[in-house]
Design a protein around this nucleic acid. Structure first.
Lengths: 232, 232
DNA sequence: GAGATATTCAAACAATTGTTTCCAATGACG
DNA sequence: CGTCATTGGAAACAATTGTTTGAATATCTC
């Protein structure tokens, strides 16, 4: 029996790879089931629908991540005994948690790519699902970041966190394409770990950047909210 | 009565909005043609295929952008008479060029979202198309950045440019969703112009961040704390 | 004007999609 | 052994996809 993984596992393993390579809409159930050597109906039988399969793929990463991250934050808070946790330690902890989860399956690349897809798929169910299911961990983290950066206005911190999120997700999710260019032009082979090392000082510097000029006198007329023209 | 725009224009106008909202694969030609009040066959007649339509949507933004950006760089180089152009001016010029293009059509949001989709759509024709068609402008820009940051190793600069690209594209392409949260939590209405103002110091600080620790897993995070070490 | 070209239109095309159906195989339990 | 619920498999389902067709109409050229 242990010769081959469970049918459910085989589906998930194959689906996450194909999703990461081609996106959700571009990956058909027949693509998945044929490559996983399972029957087509198995997906609907085990998961109910393609949507649920996608969510299951995410849950398999995010569930372990949240427990691990919560534990890491617990330990971090205990170590500082209610004191303020430095920003660098917070970022370091988050990075370590993210890196640890898929380590056993050697698929950090897949994980980041999935996150990137989830975010770019702004319209859909996925974003809501992730927000509802895993938003609390993020809230806890941002609250700690708030304590660590008391001089930063709330709104500014909010945006900078998302700037940094963009830096990481964008780069790591597009790693394959970028790596080809980098390797060709600079002869340097970059691994995921190497990229994370390069990211750290940039992220820290971005968070600690000086505040923007407060020349807010200029009201912006551009980018109004009304639709550009009624397409009758 | 103002006569309706050209069929081709109506298709492009509708297609770019729908693509930006739902992605390429999730937007059918029937979605586009019905909303644009155009016959279904019109797309294949005027553009040949859906792929070509997608490329045409991009070309309508990128063509004006490249000529404008080239002109801006020409002017910038002339002003410095062969001398080195400071990094901040380069970034400023790029930002201004990006902002100017869709200004007349009130659709910077759409433009950024399309760019984000193009990048997340790792597989395929779009990335190659953009690279082949508009890679030269980017090369010229990066070369100028190289001259502006002589102390940065080539590979490091390459990655940092993409880090910053991620920051901008990720944030601006997901602006709608983020803005809702920001407005609810901080009561602050953020416009595109406002975001760009916030982005600038972060991007500059990220580019000027201290170099990462050299290889071999060192646990010495002291270096990153003070971010504003100038490299130029 | 007539003729040629360009565009629009409704309909059909073939291919692919996610999902469901029905039946055989399996294995647990009395 | 017999019964029953669970699971796997091939085929069919209904819906949607991008694309093509051929005739009708508009637009332009001489």
């Amino acid at each position: 029996m242990a010769q081959q993984p469970d049918t459910v596992t085989r589906i998930l393993d194959t689906a996450e790879v194909l999703f990461a390579e081609r996106g959700f809409a571009e990956t058909s159930l027949r693509n998945i089931t044929s490559k996983a050597k399972v029957n087509l109906a198995a997906v609907n039988y085990h998961f109910g629908s393609k949507k649920s399969l996608i969510q299951a793929v995410f849950a398999r990463y995010l569930d372990p991540f949240t427990v691990r991250f919560h534990a890491a934050l617990d330990e971090l808070e205990a170590r500082h005994e209610g004191g303020v946790i430095p920003l660098e330690e917070l970022l370091e902890t988050m990075a370590r948690s993210v890196l640890e989860v898929p380590a056993e399956r050697n698929s950090l690349k897949v994980f980041m790519r999935l996150l990137g897809l989830a975010y770019s798929q702004a319209q859909g169910h996925l974003r809501r699902y992730i927000q509802d299911e895993y938003g609390s961990v993020f809230s806890r983290f941002t609250e700690l970041v708030r304590l660590a950066t008391p001089d930063l206005p709330d709104a500014e911190r909010f945006w900078r966190l998302h700037f940094m999120l963009g830096t990481v997700i964008f780069t790591l999710s597009g790693l394959d394409a970028l790596r080809d260019i980098a390797e060709k032009d600079y002869g340097e082979h970059v691994g995921m770990r190497d990229l994370v090392r390069r990211l750290r000082p940039v992220v820290v510097a971005g968070m600690n950047a000086p505040l923007p000029d407060t020349i807010t006198a200029q009201r912006e007329p551009i980018q109004g909210e009304r639709p550009q023209r009624e397409m009758v």
